[in-house]
Design a protein around this nucleic acid. Structure first.
Lengths: 228, 228
DNA sequence: ATGGTGCCGATTGTCGACAGTCGGCAACCT
DNA sequence: AGGTTGCCGACTGTCGACAATCGGCACCAT
């Protein structure tokens, strides 16, 4: 009975969860085009499973707004309008502002802890930028912001934010050009961390607000792309 | 072909949606005790339908956090901890603050429109208070706050808030004593509307914050009940 | 007595099949 | 030709049945 401690619990993921994860990634990646119709039977056939778990997975993705369902007509991949993008970033702003507010007012220790946690993401971001991998840059950028929400310690907000994050990532990957890929992305986030740790609530709120607004503007007005 | 225009589209609700609505109401009402286990087959039998739509409805309610699912063990009704209540009200605060901020900064016309919309709820609240119907008082209270979010015009925030609202209502109805039933509840909300219409952002934010904090405190510390 | 083992009922997870519904095309009537 | 009707294919919504899994009890060995 000596070396049994390295046995990992295996397969506690349900089939539907695995399917939804895979489909979610395909939607985010852009493998599935916007407006593309998905048939339950087709997916089930390709995966070698029944329609039941596929149906369950699709329903979850509909709830996450990555798919839209039409009665008796099946589901199709979302196609974002500028209004959707504004909504997503507006909702993100609501949650991030609150997270900043909570963290700042939670005292110096909490601020330092959150700052340290968020700093750990930056090296990965820098490396992705060096590699020039746009998808990974965006994903890690979102990971940073998700970390901010996580630091606020509200599981419900985190859950809602994670869904928004997937939507935002899908948006970004459809308009790849619009996302900055320079190293100043790292310093931008460094500044956010610093302001967060500093303890001045208004400064931190303004910084995060403008950070998100800039990102949203980049996505909704393609003319500002060349600034890259 | 004269009088056919008053034909309404009928029955576009799916079976699963009807089931989930019914169960959601039962959970909110308290008809279903916290921790109570629900069997798919049992529900399906009582409703005279198959397990498939029941399963779909249950999955939706799990996603809304009104039920908790355990692998191969079925679903059971949530039992809220004080931490849950704090989370719910904290998340509500995040969204309401943002809504207030958006409405106030949207200009006087938007402020007036939102204020008028919200004022329409108060007579119903006053009547529920006169009738002494605790459940309805709470429901209309939540309706007021949901209206605030709706006035901000973000469908994603509204959706998330609606889910939180159901959770909050379930909490309140489990601790009925803790909710105020006096007519000052109306004047409290009148004041909120006034501050919202007034256009001073900080005043409005503070008012809504303390309004929610008071409510959360009432629910988490039963000792403060007697203030009624 | 105690710890472990194997079985048992109950419930979920999954499957294949059927019925209902929708969009589109072709045939039909005027 | 224009418009309507009826049919056709494809898909979802729903159903009943089977297999896998879990918690608990009795049984057994020590």
């Amino acid at each position: 009975m000596a070396g049994l401690s390295n046995l990992k619990a295996l397969e506690l993921r349900s089939t539907a969860d695995s399917i939804s994860d895979e489909l979610r990634q395909m939607i985010i990646d852009g493998t599935l085009q916007p407006g593309e119709q998905l048939g339950e039977a087709k997916i089930a056939g390709q995966l070698g499973v029944s329609r039941a778990p596929v149906r369950e997975a699709l329903q979850l993705l509909v709830q996450e707004r990555l798919l839209v369902a039409a009665r008796n007509k099946g589901v199709s991949v979302v196609s974002f309008t500028p209004a959707d993008i504004r909504e997503i970033y507006d909702a993100r702003l609501a949650m991030e502002k609150h997270a900043v507010s909570q963290i700042v007012s939670a005292g110096p220790a909490a601020r330092a802890s959150a700052a340290e946690e968020l700093s750990g993401v930056l090296p990965k971001l820098a490396e992705a930028i060096r590699a020039g991998d746009r998808r990974r840059i965006s994903a890690i950028d979102l990971e940073f912001h998700t970390g901010l929400i996580a630091a606020a310690g509200n599981s419900r907000l985190l859950h809602a934010y994670t869904i928004l994050s997937a939507e935002a990532l899908a948006c970004i990957n459809r308009l790849e050009i619009a996302h900055p890929t320079g190293l100043d992305l790292v310093s931008d986030h460094e500044e956010l961390i610093e302001l967060l740790a500093n303890g001045d609530l208004d400064d931190a709120l303004n910084a995060f607000s403008s950070h998100l607004n800039v990102a949203a503007t980049r996505l909704t007005s393609p003319s500002a792309v060349e600034a890259n």
